[in-house]
């Protein structure tokens, strides 16, 4: 079953084409890695789908429904969640309050009977290492990323976008993230992750999408894309 499909998705900022006619699909259960050099347009691509920065042209289909240009709050209710590259907390809220926002407002009425309990479960699920009443502004990056993930999961997503969840993590934290990713995937949530850490990508992703200068240069099974000469060239530059 196709979860998400984009057709010729394009995002222009004035004269700059940040994402250029990218078409891709995500199937149920996929963990897709979105890779590409810095400034390739990965985050812009994700923003265009999730509604933070609506696309200039092209089409987004989410579970067979045209969702092009919907707002983030509408996409959230349809089952698309995301985390942010720079962890994006509510600084003056406690951890549990932050998760409760998504748990209360991200679900259809009546889905979550007890938002406090539900948020607690989400914090446990992502193995949040701190007390639930700690203020977000007191957390470090690793903790914030966990919190951001718990918030994203609290709205019962069917598809989860993770923007550089693993950047800046230590070896041990990386294996924690892999375990949590596995748990998320086993809940039946499809994942699109922007990532630079090849170790993580090779371990968890079943498919890869590589973007360079806003244009898709490869899409397919992980090994195939990783060995694609165009991808290697995009990352390492050409010999000439």
């Amino acid at each position: 079953m196709i979860v998400l499909e984009t057709q010729n998705l394009t995002k222009q900022f004035g004269g700059l084409t940040a994402v250029n006619a990218v078409s891709m699909t995500i199937n149920q259960g996929d963990i897709v890695g979105l890779i590409g050099p810095n400034g390739a347009g990965k985050t812009t691509f994700v923003n265009a789908i999730s509604g933070l920065n609506p696309p200039t042209s092209g089409k987004v289909t989410f579970f067979g429904e045209d969702t092009t240009g919907l707002t983030p709050e509408q996409m959230c209710k349809k089952g698309l969640s995301r985390t942010f590259q720079i962890p994006s907390p509510f600084p003056k809220m406690t951890a549990i309050e932050s998760v409760m926002t998504a748990s209360i407002f991200g679900n259809a009425p009546g889905v979550v009977k007890d938002p406090v309990q539900h948020s607690r479960e989400m914090l446990d699920f992502v193995e949040f290492p701190m007390a639930e009443d700690v203020l977000s502004e007191q957390l470090n990056t690793v903790q914030l990323k966990r919190l951001d993930l718990a918030r994203a999961l609290a709205s019962h997503p069917k598809l989860l976008f993770m923007d550089e969840m693993a950047s800046g993590l230590s070896e041990g934290e990386l294996s924690d993230i892999m375990r949590i990713l596995d748990k998320i995937s086993r809940k039946g949530i499809s994942i699109l992750m922007i990532e630079h850490i090849m170790q993580l990508i090779m371990a968890v992703c079943n498919r890869l999408l590589c973007i360079q200068f806003g244009t898709k240069i490869a899409e397919g099974p992980t090994q195939e894309v990783a060995n694609d000469p165009r991808v290697t060239k995009a990352y390492l530059g050409s010999a000439d």
């Binding site: 509604g51 983030p72 709050e73 959230c76 994006s88 809220m93």
Partner: peptide, 14 residues
């Protein structure tokens, strides 16, 4: 509070 503290995160939280 969510809107006041972080508009993007608030919107993506629905």
């Amino acid at each position: 509070k969510a809107i006041g503290q972080n508009m993007d995160a608030a919107r993506t939280s629905g």
